[in-house]
């Protein structure tokens, strides 16, 4: 928003690591994300990218290191707290509410932004109608961004793959995050859909003034929209830099791009 954006990072990861039994899945990861940036997290299969997301959102408890969100240590936070504090995410293997409508998926994302209680709901007090109307309007705006507004009443599980991926992003945005984590958002999309998605991600970043951290195997997408990229290999950080730097780094080419 303002010039001091580049000062205080939204996300500050220091020496982060996690072990699963004997296996060290991630080790010594240092990563900052600043407001309004789009940062890429890449690496070969099994490098530990998704595991990083799971630690950031407290699906897994890190074994070592610290995660600070807006200067606040998340050590004692749960998945729910982390979301309330401003991180929203999508999942590599899509996790929508498959039996609920497209609209309800997004409205569910507004759970903590709705204040009426069970009494207002069961007795259908004015507060219920007023808030539902407000939130439904906002949800429809979000769906429109992802070109899903025409499908609001369909069951999420019946959407084609690409639309499910987009709906998941819309649901994440409904929680009004400051940092959006996207785990392979373009997986399963055709080149044209991927192109659209890139535009949408940029639009979302500008429109909602949020930072985006994304995992992606599609190099065209990563190189096209990320301002900075972190490369993971076997759970270790291989390098960090601009798309140009990453593209020309021989280690990266060896570990990943040239495979």
């Amino acid at each position: 928003m303002s010039e001091n954006n580049s000062q205080a990072p939204i996300l500050e990861v220091t020496d982060l690591g996690i072990d699963f039994g004997g296996l060290t899945a991630v080790n010594d990861l240092n990563l900052n994300v600043y407001p309004n940036e789009i940062v890429g997290l890449i690496g070969p299969n099994g490098a530990g990218k998704t595991t990083v997301f799971n630690m950031l959102t407290k699906v897994y408890q890190p074994t070592r290191g610290t995660i600070k969100l807006l200067g606040q240590d998340t050590a004692k936070m749960t998945t729910i707290d982390v979301n309330k504090a401003g991180i929203a995410r999508t999942f590599q293997n899509i996790r929508l509410f498959m039996n609920m409508s497209v609209l309800d998926n997004v409205l569910t994302g507004m759970h903590n932004d709705i204040s009426y209680g069970n009494v207002s709901a069961i007795f259908r007090l004015p507060k219920y109608y007023q808030e539902e109307k407000e939130k439904t309007e906002r949800a429809m705006e979000l769906l429109k961004i992802f070109d899903l507004d025409q499908k609001a009443d369909l069951i999420a599980g019946n959407l084609p793959y690409g639309e499910q991926r987009r709906l998941e992003i819309a649901r994440a945005l409904a929680t009004q995050p400051k940092l959006l984590l996207l785990d392979e958002p373009a997986a399963g999309m055709n080149p044209q859909e991927t192109e659209e998605l890139m535009k949408t991600i940029r639009f979302v970043r500008d429109h909602f003034q949020i930072a985006v951290l994304l995992i992606e195997h599609d190099m065209k997408l990563v190189m096209g929209i990320c301002e900075r990229i972190t490369v993971l290999n076997f759970g270790m950080m291989l390098m960090q830099g601009t798309p140009e730097e990453v593209r020309s780094n021989p280690d990266v080419i060896k570990a990943y791009l040239g495979e």
Binding site: T57, V59, T78, T79, I80, N83, K84, A88, R89, F91, R95, L96, F97, M98, N99, M100, D104, L107, T108, G109, H111, N112, R171, A172, A174, T175
Partner: peptide, 17 residues
């Protein structure tokens, strides 16, 4: 919606708070 979301996908439900 929270009840149905928790049924459909527990982890996703927690991820939206």
């Amino acid at each position: 919606r929270a009840i149905m979301a928790s049924r459909d996908n527990r982890i996703a439900a927690e991820s939206v708070g």
